[in-house]
Amino acid sequence: MPESDKNHYCLDKLIGFVGNDPDAIKNMVNLFLSTTPDLLQSINSGFHEGKAENLAKAAHTLKPTLDVFGVEDTYDLIRSIEQKAKRSELDAELGKHIEQLNTTMELVFQELKLAYLET
């Protein structure tokens, strides 16, 4: 399977939590799609406006959600974002991390919408 066909999330853990129940999964996906963009927004604006505390808080809240949705390559990423924000290190490296997070999340949003909303 070509790399681009592979989804950037994995629902195994979510299913572990809510059971293999299509309605419950759809419900959680919807919730994910309606709450995470705001958190991502807070992370971005926190960074650009120098509000480290808001940034750290949003990252903290997003962390378990990413774990549950098995979002690829974000396990260490979100933790380092949270830690850097906590230390108020709003530097270029953090900017790069956030950019990386944005990119991955954008893909995940698209993939999830495709799989769960337009069927």
Binding site: F17, V18, L31, T65, V68
Partner: peptide
């Protein structure tokens, strides 16, 4: 955290 809470509830 709405998401986490809802997940635990489920």
């Amino acid at each position: 955290d709405v998401f986490y809470g809802e997940m635990l509830r489920h």
